[in-house]
Structure formats: C-alpha cells, structure tokens
Design a protein around this nucleic acid. Structure first.
Lengths: 199, 199, 199, 199
DNA sequence: AATGAATGAGGCTTCATTCAT
DNA sequence: CATGAATGAAGCCTCATTCAT
C-alpha cells in the first residue's frame, strides 16, 4: 500500500529517526511541539523533515499511522486468545503502554484523515469491536457495552495520568483497572444513554 | 475577594460576553485559541479583551475561576445530602454538565496558578475528598478509591465525548455511568497501583 | 494670539495641570511618555487630555510653547543687562534650568511646526542672536561664534547630564561652564567649518 | 570572542546589511525604530532579523558593540601618539565621524548592558581616561577636566548637528572645535561643580 | 464638560514552510 | 539529497484616539 519506490538506506534511516523523535516530542510537548525541535531531536536539519513529510500534519499522521498499525496487529493477534476478557484487558494495556502520554487525537479528526488512514482506522475499530464482542459473549464484559464505548475509553488511562505532576510510569494501570471494572457485569447499572452510532 | 468598584453597565456586559466567548473558544480550540478569535466571538475589539484581562493567561484564569467556584458551591452543598453515593454521582454530573464547554485542563497546571487560584483549587479538592470519603463510608464507593482518583476521572465523560463527531448533548451521561460503575464496590478487583499522592 | 473664548475656570485649571504633568512626564520618560500616564499624573481622565489637546503632538507643542515663551521673556529682558557676557551666560543657565532634562526637540522639527510656533521660534532666535551679538561686541565671546551656534549648544548641558545615572541637580552648571569657556576669545582656535545658515 | 562557526556567505552578507540598516534606522528614528523598518531597509524579511538577532535589544547591542570596538581600537592606538593633545582631538573626531550614523545613547544605559558589553564599555572608558590624562599632563587640556567629562562631551558634536535641517557633512567639526577649545587651559574659568564620579 | 471603555493600527516575536547553497 | 537561511502569516500586547455614558 502506498508503496513508493524504496527509499535509499540513509533516507529510510532518517525517516525512522524522525518518526521516533516526533513521537517523543509530541508526547512531551503536545501538538504544539515545533518542527525545529523535532528535527534537532532527530539530529537532522529542518529541511529534511519537510523532504520526508510535506507538512507537520503529515508527520503527525505518520506517527499516528505507526501507532495504529501496531494496535491493529495487537488486536488481531489477541482475537485468538483463550480468555476473551483477559485479551481485551491486555489490548487496552498495550494501547495505553504504546501511547504513553500520546493523546489519541487522531480519533478526533476522522474528518480530515487520508484515505489510507481511514482504512486503517476502520480496520482497527473492527478488530476492537470483535474483541469486545467476544468478551461480551464470555460474560467478561457487561452486555450493554459496545466496541465504540471501548474505543472511546481506550485513551482514558493515559489521559488522566497526564494531569498528575510527576506520574509514576505505571500509574495508568490503576486507571485502566478502574475503567475496566466499570465494564464488568458485576457492577452494571442501567446506562442512561445509548452508545453513539459511529465515530 | 477582588471586589473592585462595580463596572459600568456596558463594561460588565462585555466582561460576561468575553468570559462566555473565551470558555467556548478554549473548549473548541484548546488553549491555543487566539485572543482575536475570542474577541470576534464576543463581538468586541481585540483591545477590549486586554482592558478586561491584561493577559491571555488572565482571561483563562478568569474562566477557570468561574468554573471552579461553581464546582465548589456544588460540592459543598452536596456534602449535606442524605445519600452519599447519589451525592457524589450528582456532583460528577454537575461537573460534566458545567464543563461541557470547557476542558478541565487547568487541573494540570498546578505550577503556574495564582495564589487565589491555588486556594480555590485546594478548597475544591478538599470538598471532593470529603464527598468521596462519605460515599466510601456508606459503601457506595469501593474502599480503595481516593478523592484524587475521582478528581482525575471527573473530566473523563466530557473528554471522551469530545471524540464523537456530532455528539448527542447527553452522551456524557453514558460514560459517567460507566466510570461510576467502576467506582462501585460490586465489581472491584484489586488495583495494580497505589493512587498518586497529590496533584 | 490664538485667543479663543476664555476657558471656564475649572477647564483652565485642568489645562495647567496637564501642561505641568506632561512636562514632567516627557522629561522623565522621553517622548514615549504615554498619554495615560500624563492623564493620571494630572489627576484627570484620559478623555480630558484630548478635549484640551486634540493630539499628543499638540500637547507636546503646548509644553514646548510654554517653555519657549519663558525663554523669550528671559532673553529679551537680558538684552538690557549691563554685562553682555554675563547676560548670555545667565540666559543659557536659565535655558538649562528651565528645561531640566527636557530635550529641546522642538528645534529638530522646524518643519512640522504650527505657524504660531514658528513665529515664537523666530522671535526667540532673534533675541538670542542679539544677545550673542552684544556679547561679541563686548569681547565676551569670540568673534567667529554666531547666534545659531549658541542656539545649537544651548541644550548641551542638559543633554549630557542625561547620560549620568543619578545626576546631582546642578551638574549641568559644570558643562555649561565648559561650553561657555569654549565660546570665550581666550582659547579660540580657528574653526574648521562655517556656521550653518539657518535652522 | 563569541566566534561561532563562520556564517554562510549570504548569511554573513545579510548580517552586515542588517547591522548597517539598524545603525542608520536607530540614528534617524531613535531607539523606537521599528524592526520592520530595519528589515525593509536591509532588504530582508522581518523573520531574518530574528534569525540573526533573537531580540531587538540584541540587534541594538550588536550595533553598539560594533561601534564601541572600533572606538577602543582607535583610543588604544592613539595612546602611543606623540602629541597628546592632538591625539585626544583626533580620537574625538573619529568618535564623531563613526557616530555620524549612530547616537551614542548606549552610554546612558549602563544598567541593562550584557556582561560582554559592560566589559567593553569599561575598557573604552579606561582608554579615554588615559588619553585625557596624557593630554592633561602635556598641558593640552585644563587640569580640572576628567575623562568622564570627555566621555560625556564626546557625542555632543553629532548631537547638535542633528538639529540642523540639511547639515553639511563636516559641520560636526565646527562644534568639536568649539567644545575642544573649552577644554583647553587658555580660557579655563573655575568650574562650578565637581565632575560626576562614574557612569 | 469629564470620564474611562472601546477600538484597531502597529510593534515584537514565533514558527511552519520554501528555497538557495 | 541535506542543510539551514529566509520568509511572512499570525499571535500577543500597547497605546493614541474615538465615543457612549
């Protein structure tokens, strides 16, 4: 997909350096991270950033695509797990871990996504839907919870940890556990509103 | 506190228009919302913003103070409610409702707050602590949940709704209910990480 | 001259307050002194400034006119003094004293002066020319020095004192003395350039 | 000092263009000269100014440092001249000539100077002190005149010429000569005030 | 007539993006 | 291809001036 001619070795390496640097910088500084800082962190010139990614937004999109691809792999792999509840929990853990502080803002901008990204997003959402359905079937998750709910709650652990001044690196596990307990059947009270149709 | 002489009628009106416009603009665009846009939305000139709020940060602070003050009132009033669990739930509902137009990100920046704001923040947090303690005493909330946990989760319902394209106005209730179910004793599983000490 | 209808008593008083405040503020802060500060110093509203002086430049012009008028009086009075050299020195002292720190910038803007100001300026210059001529006739001043030279050097004492951090209030007298010694015949060496024709 | 790697050819050229434009603009408009005007005069974009000088103050500092460095060289070189009086006069001439495009108002603000600038300023002042002392020893200058006096009077010739509408380019020589005659022993009258201690 | 609120042009600075080297 | 210099739009803020009260 979108397979342009293969990059020269050093160019490919720069691309990876940039993606890594951008991910870290966006994580630390938010979407206002400056291109200059990203370039510096990657050890390349500012111009090189724009050779690889015509736009700052494109760079962000590439970072997001990277993440989303890994999430798809994880989700699809976990569909074969034995314990459906544990599988869902693990997926959410991987999602939180992989995004340490990286705001899932790509969800927000469904509108402006590239076709490629839209495709990937859809595939991820389908995998999550399937994970949730299995967990629901196994009574690991309450029946009134949908895949969309889980998608929306997926980024909560990292988000709330962002409010803590110097957060311990595993603090997100606490909030993932709390959220997940809310998805279990045991404490389920009727939900006052139906789930949203689509994202 | 900070009660200067009463403003002229039109000035007072502009101040309110500005606070409202700023709250909306900050909610929609985040903290990067431009002063010019806020001024336009309020229907006043750029300079008028600075007559009322010498700095963009001051404007933000005023919006936040507005919100926080209402939250304090609600929390302290609900401390006298009969049903401690229902009181906590209602508080969280009021918080979500009031914040529909405003991301609670001010919690994040304890560092740069004015003394006045720090004072208000502390008072709000104490009231929430008390609400949670009462709810815990009444077994409406699991024993391993702290006030700080609730403070951190408080802004989740609105936050996740922000990811939904054209959200129904009451959708947040669904996610508040899910979160709250996670706080109940019934589904409690051991939490893998202690709560953060302070914010 | 420019005798509009006489001002009401309080208006006249405000005009004086403003002229005094403006003179001080311009002296301390330079031409960047803000109208708001002048108004505050005079104890009136900003709007009142503009009622009396349509423009900040007009206010400055009025201050200057005030000074220039007093200088004219002094110069014309001193034309009758016995000792022509002492008279010139005294005039320069009065000029420095009266302008304590007030930059003689009106000289600089001969172009944009009002007719009234041009008239006054011309009258002042004529009086100074006469003072210098008399001093020259009495051998108190070297023969190759003109009135224009003196006009140009008139503001030097205050100007250089402006470079001293916390100047003693009479420091300008030192530099006036040095300048004046340069005008005396005793040390006169040939001047390498003719005087400018006009200002 | 502060010798970074050599600039690219075009960048070096722009830096010089900017320094020249800034010197002219500051000379004409005073310290309020706008960065935009300086950029326009140099024929570069506004942003380029900030690439070379992060702050307007830094630009001013660079201009001043340029001037001051040349003055130091001149002063230290002239310390070896035979005729001490002629040396001082020549120094003042060079100062006036070099400053034709730049008001020496930086002397005024010892407070806000960078350490580097303070160092240079001190060195210049020491050299001038030495020049004056030698001239005094050779009876070329009256005994009651100090280096500080000369420093203060140094910028007078250009300053007064600034009041003349279309000044001939060498007019400053006339006023330097007049000032210098005031420093000679021949016309010395007792000075009514001691010199300032320091700048 | 006085006040001070409102206005908007203009100043300094940042930063995504373009382009000469 | 990579670099970093140049650009200019856009942001925050100040202040002379206008105008409703």
């Amino acid at each position: 997909m979108t397979s342009h001619r293969p990059l020269r070795a050093d160019a490919a390496r720069n691309r990876e350096l940039l993606l890594a640097a951008a991910a870290e910088e966006f994580a630390e500084r938010g979407l206002d991270a400056s291109v200059a800082d990203i370039a510096r962190r990657a050890g390349v010139g500012k111009g090189t950033v724009f050779r690889h990614f015509p736009t700052k937004d494109d760079l962000l999109a590439a970072v997001v695509q990277d993440r989303i691809t890994r999430l798809i792999e994880a989700a699809e792999r976990l569909l074969d797990a034995e314990d459906a509840g544990a599988a869902l929990l693990e997926f959410l853990g991987l999602a939180a871990l992989g995004q340490q502080e990286f705001d899932q803002s790509f969800l927000q901008r469904s509108g402006r996504l590239s076709p490629e990204m839209t495709r990937l997003q859809k595939r991820l959402f389908q995998a999550i839907d399937a994970l949730v359905e299995r967990a629901r079937d196994h009574k690991a998750v309450r029946p009134d919870v949908t895949g969309t709910d889980v998608i929306l709650l997926m980024c909560v652990p990292n988000h709330v940890v962002g409010y803590v001044p110097d957060p311990p690196p595993d603090l997100w596990r606490r909030y993932l556990a709390l959220i997940f307990d809310g998805l279990r059947p045991e404490a389920a009270h009727p939900l006052p509103h139906p789930p949203p149709e689509s994202l």
